[in-house]
Amino acid sequence: MTTPQPSASASRAARGEPVLCVEGLQTHFDLRQWGFVRVGSVRAVDGVDFTLDAGETVAVVGESGCGKSSLARTLLALHRPTDGAIRFDGTPLNGLSGSALKAYRGRVGYVQQDPYGALPPFMDIQRILAEPLIIHGVRGRAERARRIDAALEEVGLTPAADTRGKFPHQLSGGQQQRVVIARALLLRPAMIIADEPVSMLDASVRVEILELLRRVQREHHLALLYITHDLSTVRHYVDRAMVMYGGRIVEQAPVAELLARPGHPYTEALLSALGDPDADNAHRQREVPGGEPPSLIQPPSGCRFHPRCRHAMPGKCELEPPPPDFRPRPDHRIACWLHE
């Protein structure tokens, strides 16, 4: 039995070891004809390396279809990785099954994009929140009720009694997302994976939910992996950001560094597409990368960004994929031949 205990993780964190360590991760989905003849595969995650420290918030940024949600699901053990290693608290995730896998799932919280869809519509909030506790063997109705109330109050649904008996459709989108966050926190996880947690919410409640995530992340010293397509929400809420393109991480750096000195042409393009609250912008011509997101079934050769890249070097970029760790600065990693 290799279930890491909270005290063990705390001591590991103290020694500076990362909570999550991902090396060469690949998640491919087979394309089959007639149900059994393999005719190709979707390379949704195709060689990803990164680490996540305790108490650290890291953003994964990328456009739709770049593989960031597949990455999240692989980390949640919802997809089986094709290759590569995931270590959580020093324990390898590969081949984990049965009670060990269940124990791992209890230590990772998941916040989804669509809060209404994430809550079973036929259960009331009390029942929804009791489910993870029942599954993880929290016995005693009173004990469960106490923890549910505490979680609801922690995410700002006070008094808990007002929310407990309601059904998901009786709550607003923001309240629903708070319940989802409460559910993710219930089992006292070491890490939370939030997949586009605010993209389906009204602009007015996005900030509240992001503030809530940051608060609980700090209070519980959680590792938070924040997946988004929206760079504008990244600036204030994360420590580090990773930019994903075509199933790979093309650049990772502390968020201030990344925003100030983007190294990869794709990051530059993303940043230039970002709205800036400046009146002059209205008349400025922006440079937006043309073309389509890359196919994950037949990805471009060499650097996956080269067909859309302004700086592509013929005879180099389309032939050889760049290694992911050109480091202009120690904590800034870029996968681009420009930085060779």
Partner: peptide, 26 residues
Amino acid sequence: EAPYIEAARAYGAGNARIILRYLVPR
């Protein structure tokens, strides 16, 4: 494919529980 089923798997619900408590009641 509903997100709530994915969420249930993510917090450790087993196959029997998902079938009987998440799919059938719906």
